[in-house]
Structure formats: C-alpha cells, structure tokens
Design a protein around this nucleic acid. Sequence first.
DNA 1: TAACCGTATTAATATTATTGATACAGTTAA
DNA 2: TTAACTGTATCAATAATATTAATACGGTTA
Lengths: 135, 135
Amino acid sequence: MIVLDYRDRRPLYEQITGRFQELIVKGILPKDTQMPSVRSQAMQLSINPNTIQRAYSELEREGYIYTIKGRGSFVADISGLLGERREEWKKQFMALVEEGQLLGISRQEMGRLLALPEPGDMEGKIEDKGGDGSD
Amino acid sequence: MIVLDYRDRRPLYEQITGRFQELIVKGILPKDTQMPSVRSQAMQLSINPNTIQRAYSELEREGYIYTIKGRGSFVADISGLLGERREEWKKQFMALVEEGQLLGISRQEMGRLLALPEPGDMEGKIEDKGGDGSD
DNA sequence: TAACCGTATTAATATTATTGATACAGTTAA
DNA sequence: TTAACTGTATCAATAATATTAATACGGTTA
C-alpha cells in the first residue's frame, strides 16, 4: 500500500503522510478503517517505528486520522477536511502579521482592521428582495 | 548606530536588516544617505564583511537601499514605498481574513492569534535619543 | 500474563542556515 | 597608472535545525 522512494528529496515521514492523505481523500481507505499499526507498517517498510509514528501524528494533527491509545489509529471523517487548510491559513496569517509589523503596522491596528465589519459582511445569506438585482 | 545582541536568537544579518529598516522608516537615515561601507560596518561590529553584505542585499531586495557598485550603498526613497506597501498589505490582510472566515475561523479567533507574542519579538534595542544619527 | 496497541525521551545523524576567509571587479583621486 | 576605497562572488568552516533511530513506558484486549 505504501512505497518509499529514496530518490525522493522529501523526508520519509512526509512521503508517508502524503501517500496516506491520498489514499484517504480518494476513499480507498474509508472512514473508520484501521490504519496499519506503527510497528507493522515500520517493519513492512524496514524503517524505524518512530518514523511511522511521526507520520501518524501529522495525519492526526491535520485531521485525517484519529487514535485510540492502546487500540490503534483509524481513518477520520474527512467530509469537512478543513483542518489542513486552516493550518496553512494560519501560517500565512502569521507571516503576514510579521511583515505588517515591519511596515509599521501595530498588532493593535491589525486588531482594529479585524473589528471593522466590511461592506458586504452582513451574512450575505439574507435574501434582500429590494436589492439591485445583480447576481 | 547598530548594536548586536548575541542573546538574540535571530541571526546577525537579520538583526542588522531589522535595525536599519527601523532607522530608515523612522527617518533617522534620510533618503540618499550613504550607508556605512560593508567593511567599515563589519569592523565596527567585529564581524565578517559578508554578514553586512548579506544584510545589505536583503535591504536592497526589499527596496530600502540602492547600490552603486564601487561607490557604495545609499538609503532609497521609501516615501512611496511605505504607503504603497501598506495599502497592498491591507488588501492582502483583508483578503486573507475573508478566506479564513470561509474556513470557519472567526475574527475573534484571529484576534487571539494576533495577541500571541512571538519569540524574538522584543525590538527596541536601538538607542533612539532623538539625535539626527549622522556619522 | 502475553501480545498487541500508541507515546515519550533521548541520542545519532543528515541537512540546512549562518558566518567567515579569500579573491575578484568597479570607482575615484593622486 | 597606482592606491585606497567601494560592492560582489565563491567556497569552506561552523552553528543550528530537521530527521531518523534506540529504547523504555503505559494502555487495551484476550
């Protein structure tokens, strides 16, 4: 199910997380399927169990799997799958905040930007029958 | 003008770029002021000229200074740059905020992210006594 | 108890980032 | 031209970090 490529620049645990993400997203590993145990998977790939452990930790952090200590790890319900995107978003956000500080924009000022409701921020789900009719 | 802090986790060249950015943004180093030469600045700080060179490369890439080979490096005109950049930054920021909201991240949560103090966020090592900073 | 599960801690190692040593090239003035 | 400045490029030494492994620990189940 998993194949390692030692010509790949990426670290082993990253290859493994990527493969499992693919298998899970494609539905090949459905919700609640038990993942191979860290030891069996490690033995099968001839690497250290900790490397599998790290891959699984990542997968869990990103919401792809869940773990029951002593029992095993299982494929999570990814119908939402927002976890990964949120993490990526946070990274971007923090980077942008730092950049803004170099431009002389204080965090306080950023907070004010957050507080300002934007034009068109009024929960656009409300059907406004008196609108301009566009859309 | 520049002081190194060896207790600072950040690399030397990053400390240096940060200090100069501050000095330039605050107007202590006005437009067209000649920067200290890489060698003199290096000697003054007792570090390798290459470290200053790297800092200057960064500053130039970011538009804070310009260089004339063989003559020296000089403070660039940042009057437009800063306002322009801030506007651009705000656009990016608001766009990212909206994107985050689509991912289910509330503005309140974003505010909490802003509040987190970062490692190495303690600026203020520069002695700014209000002098004109000429040298 | 035994045989499985995941997890935490620490160390060895590989990779990358940072700084330094040195040589090269452009500008200016004597 | 030479001499004394300027920035720049290349490569090596070293510091910092990332990656993997060795090992021991605690939970679950039959």
